[in-house]
Amino acid sequence: MTDTSTLSETGTPSKGASHLSRYFYKSPLSRGYGLLSPTLLLMTLGIVVPVCILLVMSFWTRQGFGFDTTFTTANYVKAFDQPIYMALMKRSLYVSAWATISTVLLAYPMAYYVAFHVHKNKMMWIVLMTLPFWTSYLLRVFAWKVVLGYEGVINSFLMGMGVIDAPLEFLLYSPTAVIVTLTHAWAAFAILPMYVSLEKIDKSLLEAATDLGDGPIWRFIRITLPLSMPGIISASFLIFIPTTGDYITPALLGGPDGMMIGNLIQLQFGAVNNWPMGASLSIILMLFIASIGLVFLFLTKLARERIS
């Protein structure tokens, strides 16, 4: 802080202003914090404090209706000892990894098309692509239940065409149903960031690549893909992080074999009534996601360096 106050001394003095307000206007640091303060306050109250509470609670244990507040790592030991917790964690990561990959793969061509081949009414295209997301998340998940269901759209169609005699039962209540639904439900979060980064690519770079002898495929691999990487990375994070903990979709479509860690955490805070265990599982989930995110970032950085 002493650095910045000397810095403010060097600025042009404004007449009539008190020392404090002059300091405030001239110091870039305090001005920055001043602008940040409403958000910062909200973040502290809404994220930092609850995470701290969660962290503290995860070292407690349940006792009847209350908590035993002596410090213990018993919950963490239990989470790694009993097979159910890590198995569900693995399944959650598996499901959301597939959901992320398929969302990004399916959304990339759409974003690419709008960014490079649509020249009129781009905004309308974007709005049209996000149109399904104007309905509520729960409704979209439920709609998939209708599509995949026993007497659902797919089964009725296939039976009507005479392809199958009895409804396909594996469509609903399976991890696959969860992956399909998550892929659709989160598509907008992939299209938008990827569109933005594709849109920003300087078209003259593509021309230069062509001039220097790159065919369309190499041009894509050497220019478009690396330059759109920030969009792909942010899309992957935007989808991977929330879907790992998702619980509505597995609850409605997962069936007994599609249960995910989010459902288990919800149960700890609900019927099972073991809040400290739920807190521990939440913390473990956060750590898992964070470490996977770091590995992913590292790998993409490596890949980008390789390509360029």
């Binding site: 349940r62 009993q82 097979p83 159910i84 007994p256 249960m259 019927a271 099972v272």
Partner: peptide, 14 residues
Amino acid sequence: TRMNETFEQIKAGF
């Protein structure tokens, strides 16, 4: 609590 915990585990396949 014990009953719910056990039953949830069984439902999840353990």
